[in-house]
Design a protein around this nucleic acid. Structure first.
Lengths: 183, 183
DNA sequence: TGCTAACCGGAGAGTGTCTCCGTATCGTGG
DNA sequence: CCACGATACGGAGACACTCTCCGGTTAGCA
């Protein structure tokens, strides 16, 4: 890759991160190009479609996801609180910009999605947390990872679209957690 | 209202119902106008924005919602099954076309939304079902109607966006119901 | 039948997406 | 150090969608 190409690539990712955070995932891509100081042609050569840009942005997630999992697994309290804590981390992770939760949650179960592979990191994270709870025999037996992801993703999506704050989201997550924890 | 105006109004609503069902709530409004056999100007005079069209479409809901509530309240079995049955009715009601669940769920808590008042019918329906369960002392005390709506709306939204069938949605609703029913 | 308020619908401005291709730049091999 | 080919740049523009404005038309009443 030529030096100028790499420079523009990096600028575009950075600009996209900014614009998406400010205006949501529906923001104009020309705006992204403009802010990166390049023409639209350059943007579309590097990133054939919107999702490719999202994919690049999500690179930096991996580390943060790992940290969140580690923190969760180190938790010593009751299983319900562990699960609840993880849910809150997860909701924050996927709520980086407007439209994110919906995008990610639906990509999670769609191997055709351009960001499917990135989402598998999140799925693996869930697997680890769920496995830890199973070890303590705290979880209902018939639930699958994908179901948990969809439940929490649903809450995050609603929260995103209704612009709910953490205080409003928490009781929703509690209900989900209570429904998952063994009675 | 002049006869020709009413005729066009009705045609537009019917066309919108068709187009939204086929292509989702994001479909082109010019397409709706074309299918109704009128110009875009006529469409936008009758319906200043997309939501106004949705509002008109939702007119026919009221009756169906009432029927669903009645059916639910007549149910004699255990509270969990009553709640689950209602959830399924509700998800079907708001999943008339792609994008519907998200739209409705976020409008539910936003008095500024053009379809807010229509949504209050749905809210009233939830209130009735929840009141019935409270009477049986079957529900957790600290939950509010809006929270229940958001939880089920979240599941419906995810189902809509991931194109899940009823079989995939049911276990998700079960978790929510279990989290709401008194232990 | 004739009048007028109400309605119709197409042209077009504004915005966003995405492509094509002439031009500019990089970086290597001579 | 320079020249040249490969690579990348970016703006013009085709296309799609939303929404408005206004000249022409029509319904319905007197």
């Amino acid at each position: 890759m030529r030096a100028d190409a790499k420079r523009n690539y990096d600028r575009l990712v950075e600009a996209a991160r900014e614009v998406f955070r400010e205006q949501g995932y529906d923001a104009s891509l020309d705006e992204v190009a403009k802010r990166a100081g390049v023409g639209p042609g350059t943007l579309y050569r590097h990133f054939p479609h919107r999702d490719a840009l999202l994919d690049a942005i999500m690179q930096s997630w991996v580390q943060r996801v790992d940290e969140a999992v580690e923190k969760t697994l180190a938790f010593e309290g009751p299983p319900r609180d562990l699960l609840l804590g993880w849910f809150q981390e997860y909701v924050q992770l996927i709520s980086l910009h407007k439209g994110g939760p919906a995008k990610i949650t639906s990509a999670m179960g769609d191997p055709e999605s351009p960001i499917y592979h990135k989402c598998q990191v999140l799925r693996g994270a869930h697997d680890q947390v769920i496995a830890a709870l199973r070890e303590r025999n705290a979880l209902r037996e018939d639930v699958e990872t994908l179901q948990v992801i969809r439940l929490v993703g649903g809450v995050a999506t609603v929260a995103d679209q209704s612009e709910l704050d953490l205080a409003a989201v928490r009781p929703l997550l509690e209900v989900v957690a209570d429904g998952l924890i063994k009675a």
